[in-house]
Every structure is written in C-alpha cells, then in structure tokens.
Design a protein around this nucleic acid. Structure first.
Lengths: 95, 95
DNA sequence: TTTATTTGGTTTATAAAATAAACTACTTTA
DNA sequence: TAAAGTAGTTTATTTTATAAACCAAATAAA
C-alpha cells in the first residue's frame, strides 16, 4: 500500500529544486536560490547531493568574471521525480 | 510558489500513519505496524510525536491482560493533513 | 515446571539529514 | 583603498530517523 519514498527526493529543498528543473531547460544557482528562498549554504549542499545521485548535471562557468553555476535535470532525475510523485499518491490520495 | 511543508507530516512513517488514520475511525498499534511495515520502536516514537503535536489521540487500554494502544486522528490532525496535501501539490503538479 | 518464544510495546544509542554560521575569493561601488 | 556586495563552499550544530536493546506479561514447548 505504501511504497517507499526515495529519500533523495523526500526533502523539501531538493524536491523544490527538482520541481523547478523538471519544467525548464536549465536554471542557475541564483535563480534556484531566489525561487526556493533557500540559504546559499543549504542549496549548495543539496545540489551536490542531487548531482551525486545523478539526478541533475551541474556546469560551472564564468559569466564575465563572476562564477556561474548552471543546473539541469538528467533523464534519471526525471524518472526519479516521476516515480516519487507516483509513490506519494499512495499516501495522499483520498481513500 | 513553494509553500513550506509541515515537518511533522513530511516524514514517511508519520505520513503513512496519518494517511491511514484519516480514513478510519481508529486503528491500534499492531494494525498500524503491519500496514506500514515499521519497526515497533520507530512507530512508538513517531506516534508520540504526532500525539504531542495534537494530530492524533492515543488511548492506552488493556485487552484482557495484554496492552492495547488505540489511535485516532484529531480535527487538528485532519486539518494539518489536508494543508500538507495542498502544499505538496505545489511541488508535484505538472507545470 | 522451568525455559524458550511471542506479543506489545518503550527507552536508549547511533547514524544520517537538514540547516545555519562562518568562511573564501573575487568584484563593484563610494 | 576601504567597505559592501556577489556567488558560492566548508564546517559545525541541531534535528530526525532508525535500529538495537530492553521490559513485562503471556503462551508454547521440553
């Protein structure tokens, strides 16, 4: 009845990040930070975890002289997000 | 865009417990344990948190000589569960 | 009958996670 | 050139989740 929830996605901030990334081509650190209202430290840590899980790809470049971190979701990330949503439905659907 | 998720409900086991209780009159410890596949220790701790939050009421009785722990959701618990589901939708809805 | 084993839990200890605070490196503005 | 801002990372602390150990009573087995 209750399917296990992917612990990597069952985190408020990581879920918010994935929710954004699943709908856009790419998003940079600053955008993710303002959209989620996360602290930079927390966001940095959570992005790292998503990347290590293979759910997102992170590209570090420079925009002029300032660093720029661009994230995009991977196919594995999309699949994991969809599976998470399906599993969640077992918990929140009216019964 | 992303509403905060009630941390008391954003826990796999507590969410499963609430999901069960929202649909039944009451449920005892043994039933919750078998339905959720949780360990007794974990269930004991999480039920305690839900009770302290006022989301469930716990009644301890004896069935013959064996202890029996019966749980039921409170109005506050129902409201919290519904609010949690609404907030979640902001994260998982197709966009 | 006394010794396992099971039931229905609680308590305590450990591991993992989230978060905040401090820090780095560099840039821009006053 | 000193102060403040940008874009992050690292480290430390707190909170959570989970597992393991334990307790008291009941039942089953030797």
């Amino acid at each position: 009845m209750f399917q296990a929830l992917d612990p990597l996605l069952h985190s408020e901030l990581r879920l918010a990040v994935m929710s954004i990334l699943v709908g856009v081509e790419q998003a940079d650190f600053v955008f993710l930070r303002t959209e989620t209202n996360a602290t930079a430290g927390n966001l940095s840590v959570q992005l790292d975890k998503l990347q290590k899980a293979g759910y997102i790809a992170i590209e570090k470049t420079f925009k002029g002289k300032m660093p720029r971190t661009v994230c995009r979701i991977t196919p594995a990330g999309i699949a994991a997000f969809e599976a998470y949503v399906e599993a969640l439905k077992g918990y929140i659907d009216a019964r």
